[in-house]
Structures are given as structure tokens and as C-alpha cells.
Nucleic acid binder design. Structure first.
Lengths: 216, 216
DNA sequence: TTCGTAAAGTAAACAGTGTTAATATTATAA
DNA sequence: TTATAATATTAACACTGTTTACTTTACGAA
């Protein structure tokens, strides 16, 4: 009786089809143009059918948002060649800001939109985000160990630095920077993050050393 | 002939009525529950009438968002008693974060929602926001002069610090902090801003004692 | 005071949205 | 072959912002 297994496979395939179609719509026409009815049209099913595979629209958005974290994590990998803690912090921020500005729709879904935010808590797996977060947390810890950040709790420091990058990206994406020359927004974004990183701890020079002594 | 003047007054009064009703709806039921139809219902006019006084819904939202800036500016005034530049920075951040967390609907409208963002640029008066921004800019300049921030361009430094506060508030309001104990979010928000402000520039006595106080 | 015009207001429609209850179709198990 | 469970759909509900065509009201001039 492999029938119930095939049924399960079919169900998963249908879920995949819906998600892929949502993704296509999302990438081609942006977050605001995903609608249950348009997804249904594209796959030539009735809108109601989608509700047999997903509880509601947010569940679909949450799935897409997961894809975004995949991409973010890839972007974060670009910094692994750097060892100096301060420079790592800087490049980490740069990678994050670049990701945000170059994938505004993803960023919107992952960090700004209300929908998935609800699911994150009431739910299942915040695993995708956690991976990115913990990768970043390691860098923050290294900077604390190197004396660049004077703060006992790495969670607080990480939250602070993440907020800088998120603040920069989200203010730009939501057009809240009329005081900045619009042609230089991108450059300003990176400079702004730099200002804080370069101003942390003892002035520039003595950044090196203690990274190898970090582990315990 | 004062008739055309009375007509103008009537027109302004109707605009005011619409805005006040929108405001009431906004404060009582939140941003998501303002709709042209509900405003129309409340003032006992047809929905179409509203379009004789406002180009579209965004124009109404933009007007509300202006009210929010009024309130923010009032909150900023709480710091005027402080003179020490670093402490001023800290308190400025605290006031901003408090405003955001205590008036989430306003904050949403002012800095997160898409609607007014469009109007800010294509439009006339960013005057309300400018006042708050320039007040903050003075503090940043003072910190630069005091050697707390090593950065030539105060615009960049101001943008960076604003981003910290905005990042903190918007991540919390949009539920993107599952890694943080939800009961301590508010405290963490303030601590996170502190970390950066206290880590800026040369470590002064205030910082050192602050840190050693925390350590255990 | 009547009359034509201009302003103010509205009903109804357009084109959408997410979601669900009731119904129909299809496929499997007995 | 038939009863039943799974799948799919229709049609509706309750909304949304916005526009067009129409009606009502107010005002200045004859």
C-alpha cells in the first residue's frame, strides 16, 4: 500500500508548486503583488484550493521569507576570508547592508513586513534566522574579546550592531532619508555603519592580537 | 463679498473634520483600521466626498504622520536639562526609543509604513521631521566637538546614530527579536543603544565604572 | 423671484483583497 | 458496484481604494 505515500508526495508537490509560483510572482512583481487569487490563476486552480495546503497567506509568506534567509547567509559567507575582528565587523555590516539594498523585496519580507513576524514567534522554526544570527554573534564575541567592544553581554552588543545595519537599510528602503543626497544613499549607508565600527573602543591602531586566545 | 472666504473656511473645516475623524480611528483602532469608508461612515458622508478634500488616502496618512512628529519633538524636549554631550546622546536615544515603543502606531506611520514615505519626497514639507532632525544634529555636532565621535561629517554620524535607535525600535515593533527574552525587550532596547554610545571615542571614567559595575 | 450655472455630495460600479461554507467531483476501499 | 474519504470548486462574505455619472444644493444675475 504505497498509495498513502504517493498521496503524501502529491501533497508536498502541490505545496511546492504553490510556493514556487508565489516565489515567481514575488520576484517578478514584488511583495505587494502576491495574492492568493493570482497564485491560483497561475497554477490554474481555484483560490480555495490553496487553503487546503496552507493555513493562510502568512504561511506562504513565511515560507518565502525562509528563502530570503538562505540568500542572506550566502552573502554573509563573503567575509570569511577576513580575520581582523574590527574589519570583520565592518565587512559583516557591509554584506548585510548590500543584501538589504540589493534585495529590497526580500529584505522587506524578512525584516519589515508584519506577516511573517507573527509566525516567527507563535511558531515552529526560527532556525533559518538563527544560523545567520549566530554566525554574526561569533564576530561580536571576537570583537569583545579583542577589546573593541566594552560590554559583558554579547547579546546586547550583537543586538546593537544589528540594529545599526537594519536601521540604515530600513530607513533607506522606506524613503525616510530626505536629508541625504539621494544619489549618494548607498555610499552613505556604508559610511554610516563604518563610523560606528571605527569609533568603537580604543582608537584604530591596537586592534590586532588576542584573537587566537579567544577560545576557552 | 465674504462668501468665497466663508466657502474656503468651510472647506478647511471639512478637511479638519476628516483628519480628526481619521485620527480618532487611528488612535482607537490602530493604523490598520483606518479606511476611507470608515471615516465616511463616522462623519456621515459618502466615501466619494472625501476625495473632494483629499487626493488619496496617503494624503490623509501624511497629515496624521505630521501629528506624530509633533509628539516626537515634545519627547525630545525632555533632554534639554542635560549638558554633557555623551549623556545627551544617551538620553536622546532613550527618548526616541521610548517614543517608538510607547507609541507604536505613530512610529509605524512615521518611519515604517510605505504610504507617507512616498509623499515625503515628491512633496513640499518635510519641515516637521526636519525640526526633530536638526535638534538631534546639534547634539551630534557637540559630540564631535567633544571628541566623542571621530568623524568629520556630522550628517554621517547623525544618520548612523539615528539608525541605531530606529533599528532597535523597528525590529522590536515588527517582532524580529525571538532571540531576546520577550519580557526584557524594553530594557534590552535601551541597553543596546547605550552600548554603542558608551563605546564611542576614548573611554572616559563614566564608561569604565559603568562597565565594571556590570561585570560579575 | 425666477433661472442658469457652478459647487458639493452621492449611488453605484470597478477592480481588487483574504477567507470560508456549501457543494460538486474524483479516487480509493470495501 | 457502491460507500466513503480526499480533493477541488463555486459562490458568497466582508472588506479595501478609487472613479464616473448623476443628483442635489447654493449663489449671482436678470
Amino acid at each position: 500500500m504505497g498509495i498513502s505515500e504517493r498521496k503524501e508526495r502529491d501533497k508536498q508537490e502541490m505545496r511546492k508548486l504553490i510556493l514556487e509560483t508565489a516565489m515567481q510572482l514575488f520576484l517578478e512583481e514584488g511583495f505587494g503583488n502576491i495574492s492568493i487569487r493570482r497564485i491560483a490563476d497561475k497554477i490554474e486552480y481555484s483560490p480555495a484550493t490553496i487553503y487546503l495546503y496552507f493555513k493562510d497567506k502568512d504561511e506562504i509568506l513565511y515560507a518565502l521569507h525562509t528563502e530570503g534567509f538562505e540568500e542572506l547567509f550566502r552573502c554573509q559567507q563573503s567575509i570569511t576570508t577576513t580575520v581582523d575582528p574590527r574589519e570583520r565587523l565592518r565587512r559583516h555590516g557591509e554584506a548585510y547592508i548590500r543584501f538589504g539594498l540589493e534585495h529590497p523585496e526580500y529584505y522587506n519580507l524578512m525584516f519589515i513586513t508584519r506577516g511573517p513576524g507573527k509566525k516567527i514567534h507563535e511558531g515552529d522554526d526560527w532556525t533559518v534566522g538563527r544560523r545567520s544570527y549566530e554566525f554574526f554573534l561569533q564576530d561580536v564575541q571576537a570583537s569583545i574579546d579583542a577589546g573593541i567592544i566594552r560590554e559583558a553581554d554579547p547579546m546586547v552588543a550583537a543586538f546593537a550592531l544589528w540594529s545599526v545595519a537594519h536601521g540604515i537599510v530600513s530607513l533607506i528602503l522606506r524613503n525616510r532619508c530626505p536629508m541625504i543626497d539621494q544619489r549618494e544613499l548607498h555610499a552613505m549607508a556604508l559610511r554610516a555603519f563604518d563610523v560606528l565600527v571605527q569609533n568603537l573602543g580604543p582608537a584604530d591602531t591596537a586592534v590586532v592580537s588576542n584573537i587566537s586566545e579567544r577560545k576557552k
